[in-house]
Amino acid sequence: MAIPPASSDAGSGRDPSASPPGPGCPAGAAEAAAAPRFPELYAPGVPFAGPELQSLAADGLLARFHQHGYTLPGLPASPQLRARAAAGAVPAAIRQRVVAGRMTAAWIYGCAAEPDRLALLVDAKRRVSSLRNTRGCTLHEVRLGPFDVISLGGLMVSSPLRTALDIALHVEPERAVPALAGLLARPQQDVRLRLLVRAIEATPRVPHKRAALEKLALLAPAFVAGGAVDVEDPVDPAHGAEDVAEVLGVAHLEREL
C-alpha cells in the first residue's frame, strides 16, 4: 500500500495545479478551501481494508479508537465521536429504528469500556421481527418515553438517566457499579443519585428493583441503606424516566447533548 509522498506544496495543503485565487478572494481563504479534509474515523472498507488500517496504525499514522475503527492520532475522544463510531457498526437499514443503550450508551458517554456487542433498544411499539438477525448486536425490546432518547453523532442514544436506570436494573454488578459511578460522577451527565433511586422505584413490575438498589448502595450506603429507600414523594408507575422528571421538575432531560 503506497502513501502519497510529502512535498512542499502537499505539506502546505496547496494543489500545485490549482489556479491562483481570483479577485476579491484572499489567498488564505483559498488555501483553506483547497486544503484536504481527512475523515475523523476509519473503518475497514473504503478506502482502506482492515490489514491496511492495521499497518497505518503500526506506522503511527492512525490510532486504534474502537474494536473496528481507527482515528487520526491525537484526536480527543468525545461522546459525539463514540456515537459516530457506534453508528458505523449499526446496519444503515435499521439505524433510525434502534437506540444505543445500556453498556453501549455508557461507553458513548465515556463511563465504561466498549462492550463486545452493541446493546440496541427497540421501542415495543415498533416491529422487531425484521431486526432479529442483526449481527454483532443484542436487541432489547423496551418501552421508551420522549425524554429517554437523545440524538448524538448521527445515532439515537438512551439519555444519561435512562442509561443509568437500565444499567442498574439489567447489568451484572461487576460491570454495572463502575459504570454507574462514572455516570454519577460526571457533572455534564447531570445524573443525580436521588433521581436515579426514584426512577428505579417508579419502574413497574420489574423483578430486579432490589438488586438495582443494592448496586446503588455500594456507591452510597448512607443514602441507600441496604437497598431500602424512603421515598417522600411517590411516583406513579412509569414506562420511562421522563415521568420521574415531570414529578421532580427536572429540565435537563429535555435537552440534547
Rank of each mutant, 00 (worst) to 15 (best):
I108E: 05
I108C: 04
Y109A: 05
Y109S: 05
Y109G: 02
G110L: 04
C111K: 03
C111N: 05
C111G: 06
C111P: 00
A112K: 02
A112M: 09
A113S: 11
A113E: 12
A113M: 06
E114K: 01
P115C: 11
P115Y: 10
R117D: 09
R117N: 07
A119T: 06
A119E: 08
A119V: 03
L120S: 03
L120T: 06
L121Y: 14
L121E: 11
L121H: 14
L121P: 04
V122I: 15
V122S: 13
D123Y: 01
A124G: 13
K125E: 08
K125C: 06
K125T: 09
R126I: 04
R126E: 11
R126D: 11
R126C: 07
R127E: 12
R127N: 12
R127D: 14
V128S: 15
V128Y: 15
V128K: 10
S129N: 13
S129I: 09
S130Q: 14
S130D: 13
L131K: 09
L131D: 08
L131Y: 14
L131G: 09
L131R: 07
R132S: 08
R132K: 11
R132N: 07
R132T: 08
N133G: 14
N133I: 14
N133D: 15
N133A: 15
T134R: 02
R135T: 14
G136T: 12
C137W: 03
C137D: 02
T138S: 12
L139M: 13
L139N: 10
H140N: 08
H140M: 07
E141Y: 12
V142S: 09
R143D: 02
R143N: 00
R143M: 01
L144W: 08
L144V: 11
G145F: 07
P146V: 08
F147R: 14
F147C: 12
F147Q: 12
F147A: 13
F147V: 10
F147L: 14
D148T: 05
D148E: 08
D148C: 07
V149D: 00
I150H: 03
I150E: 04
I150W: 03
I150G: 03
I150F: 00
S151Q: 15
S151A: 15
S151E: 15
S151H: 13
G153K: 07
G154M: 03
L155D: 01
L155S: 00
M156L: 09
V157N: 06
V157H: 04
V157A: 05
S159M: 09
P160I: 04
P160Q: 06
L161A: 04
L161Y: 06
L161D: 04
R162N: 11
T163R: 06
T163I: 10
T163P: 02
A164Q: 01
L165C: 03
D166Q: 04
V171L: 00
V171G: 00
